Amino acid sequence: MNKKIKKICFLLAFTVFTNHLYAQESFIKDISYPYLEKLIATAKKNYPEVKLRQSQVNAAKSTYNQTKFAWLDGLTASYIYSPQNSINLATPTIFKGYQLALSLSIGQLLKNPSATHVAKENYKIAEYQQSEYLLNIEAQVKRFYFAYLEAQAELRLRSNAVLDAEGAVKQLKYAFQKGETTFQIYNEQLNSLYNQNSFKVQAELATFTAKTNLEELLGTKLEEIK
């Protein structure tokens, strides 16, 4: 094998080696926990399901507050007016003038503690469900954020691999035109460039998909969250 062929083989081996190095790239260094907290706060503020849970809590609380005073529904008030100068022989009264009468439904009074207890438990259930959902959406935002960073890292890797493959193709094309390498080697590098471009397109799609998933939870564009 002459020196020129060896040089070409070294170039191909170097391309494979650098692609392997790119594959070791980690997205962990890109994680910003303060920014992640902003994303979580934004999702809790904007996502419709969060607002729905809060409305359920408010409704349950309102019902509970109403039942605490529901015993008043069994309370009725009336008044009797007995003129000062009149004498009622059928139903004689001691008091003259206006008299206030109050009556309380025993059934309503006995039923109210049970209804209040049920309303209180429903209020607690609504609060627990809200807390559970807030934890779920926080975990979901984290998963989508990490998936987005991973997709970005993969896209950088594929973009660098395309650049390397393009550089190798240019050199091999020049070497092939000068008769310093074979068409087979040149064609293999062309196929490699095609594959790298295909991987890059897939990485771009994965990045946009991950970004869309995250923005769906946030209710706004990532660019608007600083």
Score class of each variant (00 low, 15 high):
149 L>K: 01
138 E>F: 03
76 T>N: 13
191 N>L: 15
125 I>H: 07
138 E>G: 02
141 V>C: 01
65 N>Y: 11
183 F>E: 10
92 P>D: 11
104 L>Y: 03
44 K>D: 05
120 K>S: 13
132 E>P: 01
210 A>H: 01
57 V>K: 08
135 L>S: 02
156 R>H: 04
84 Q>C: 10
37 E>F: 05
107 G>M: 10
9 C>F: 02
3 K>W: 01
218 L>W: 03
82 S>N: 15
73 D>A: 11
72 L>S: 12
75 L>C: 00
202 Q>Y: 09
63 T>D: 11
130 Q>F: 11
134 L>I: 00
214 L>M: 07
50 V>I: 05
205 L>D: 12
129 Q>H: 02
163 L>T: 12
106 I>K: 06
43 A>H: 01
80 I>N: 15
12 L>F: 03
56 Q>E: 15
176 F>M: 12
64 Y>C: 11
63 T>W: 11
124 K>L: 14
196 Q>Y: 04
144 F>Q: 03
32 S>V: 09
30 D>S: 10
203 A>N: 00
47 Y>M: 04
167 G>A: 08
143 R>E: 02
54 Q>L: 12
223 E>H: 08
208 F>L: 10
77 A>I: 09
112 N>P: 06
82 S>Y: 12
3 K>V: 00
169 V>W: 05
104 L>H: 05
46 N>T: 11
71 W>E: 10
173 K>Q: 15
23 A>Q: 14
12 L>C: 05
167 G>H: 03
207 T>Y: 07
156 R>P: 00
160 N>W: 07
39 L>W: 04
218 L>K: 00
3 K>I: 02
205 L>V: 15
198 S>C: 07
99 Q>V: 07
107 G>S: 07
85 N>L: 06
2 N>C: 00
208 F>H: 11
45 K>V: 06
2 N>M: 09
214 L>K: 03
116 T>Y: 11
111 K>C: 07
85 N>M: 07
218 L>A: 05
204 E>W: 03
14 F>L: 03
80 I>T: 14
14 F>K: 04
209 T>M: 13
56 Q>M: 14
62 S>N: 13
171 Q>K: 06
148 Y>K: 04
28 I>E: 14
180 E>W: 02
198 S>Y: 12
100 L>A: 14
126 A>I: 06
215 E>D: 08
27 F>R: 08
150 E>M: 09
46 N>H: 06
99 Q>Y: 11
49 E>N: 04
121 E>I: 15
144 F>V: 02
81 Y>C: 04
163 L>N: 11
134 L>R: 02
173 K>G: 11
20 H>D: 14
179 G>Q: 06
28 I>K: 12
157 L>W: 06
148 Y>G: 04
125 I>K: 14
93 T>R: 09
44 K>W: 05
25 E>Y: 10
202 Q>W: 07
16 V>W: 01
111 K>R: 13
60 A>W: 09
108 Q>T: 15
42 T>W: 05
34 P>N: 05
30 D>G: 09
118 V>A: 15
14 F>M: 00
109 L>Q: 08
165 A>T: 00
198 S>N: 15
51 K>P: 03
48 P>T: 07
48 P>A: 06
17 F>M: 10
97 G>H: 10
178 K>F: 08
26 S>D: 11
152 Q>E: 10
149 L>N: 02
87 I>K: 14
200 K>R: 09
105 S>G: 13
47 Y>A: 03
84 Q>R: 14
195 N>T: 12
90 A>N: 15
87 I>A: 10
64 Y>F: 15
110 L>Q: 07
